[in-house]
Amino acid sequence: MPPPPGVFDEAEAQSIDRMLMCPICPGESIDQSQVELAKQMRQRVREMLAQGTTRQQVLDFFVERYGPTVLAAPPKSGLNLLAWVLPVALVAAALAGGFLALRAMRRGNPEPVLDPYLAAVDARLSSSNLAEGQGRPDNNG
């Protein structure tokens, strides 16, 4: 579909395309879908941008008509903020938990370099990589 005359940022238009789901195709944004409605919506996005409509106004226009389902991602406000915050918080908590668990494991073993033999091996290993070179498969991995 040829873009209508008028000045607008095609990159911005495409980024809006990716934020809008095609209302009649399962799981595809209007950027992806090749059905007629998606093409018409893409064209409408460009027309609106050419008239000076802002990104948010364009999105609101479509939400008003097709409902919030038309947005490709939950809005970052209200209850839907949870959609964004919860996974990030949980991943952060998991990493923190992992860190604590590791530290606890280390506490259980208070003396990391506990004996002269291993210390000597460590020293040798850090000075050269020789011990790895002799085709001993369980040496490293």
Binding site: M19, M21, G67, A72, A73, P74, A83
Partner: peptide, 20 residues
Amino acid sequence: LSRLFGGQEITVARPFYDQV
């Protein structure tokens, strides 16, 4: 979840995954 608790279905598609 949003349909169950909010009564209104909210789409989660590529922009969400890209960002998170």
